[in-house]
Amino acid sequence: MAADLFAGIDVGSTTTKAAIIDRDGRLLAEAVDKSGYDFAGAADRVFAAALAAGNLERQRVGKVVSTGYGRRNVAFADESRTEIFCHATGAYFHFPEALTIIDIGGQDNKIIRVNAQGERETFAMNRKCAAGTGAFIEEIAYRLGLELGELNAMAEKSEHEVSIGSFCTVFSCTEILGLLRRGAKPEDIVKGVFRSVVKRVIEMDTIAGKVVLTGGVVAYNPIIATMMAEMLDGQEVVIAPHPQVVGAFGAALTASRL
């Protein structure tokens, strides 16, 4: 059987993602799993899971490109690219115009600007700090005893959002303790946490053109897109299709062009 499909594996700091596409860039299957301590094992698992999800045979997959922090741990990849490259490639495929791509990941954020031709102009990553990343949200959820999956719905209910001013995750937790003592409602705190994420992200770099959000955090918390649009004064903010696997999708597109 001739290989007619391509795969991308994105081994991120928190989760590992796989995307399988055809020659036209159609996403046929995807899978996500925790990265854990064994990046090579996680890559094997998500690739197998994506094949199973799409009911696809391994032989049909020709080239594979890996990306993410664990990109060099994917033994079956033909080549690797950085996640900056792959997120830009994946997002530009969906929106072929001048873009600012904002990826909110588990442990880092990226802001990538591409021109109308899809060439990267600049990129920035968060400094070595978890503020504004998924890790920040996870820590706050843990402190409040909330499930990650319920945060978006809670924030939607907020009527009196509170302000969380600290840069530091630990200081934010202390600030939240003070807010709780003064009777703040959990939903208002959660919305304040999302506001803090958006603030930390948009202060990282200049944001121009259409904004495309990617990553697991916006996949589960789309309220971030709404809040970001409000804060960017009406600039268009969209969530990429299959936001959590945009990096893997970009890697698969790259594989199809090798």
Partner: peptide, 30 residues
């Protein structure tokens, strides 16, 4: 074009090697 990497001259506690590698590789790709 430019890229900024966060680090320090002597205090390696201020340096995330993985992040720096990713930024430099991404810059060269660019």
């Amino acid at each position: 074009p430019f890229v900024t990497i966060d680090g320090d001259l002597n205090d390696l506690r201020c340096y995330s090697e993985e992040q720096a590698i990713t930024k430099i590789e991404a810059f060269i790709e660019q």
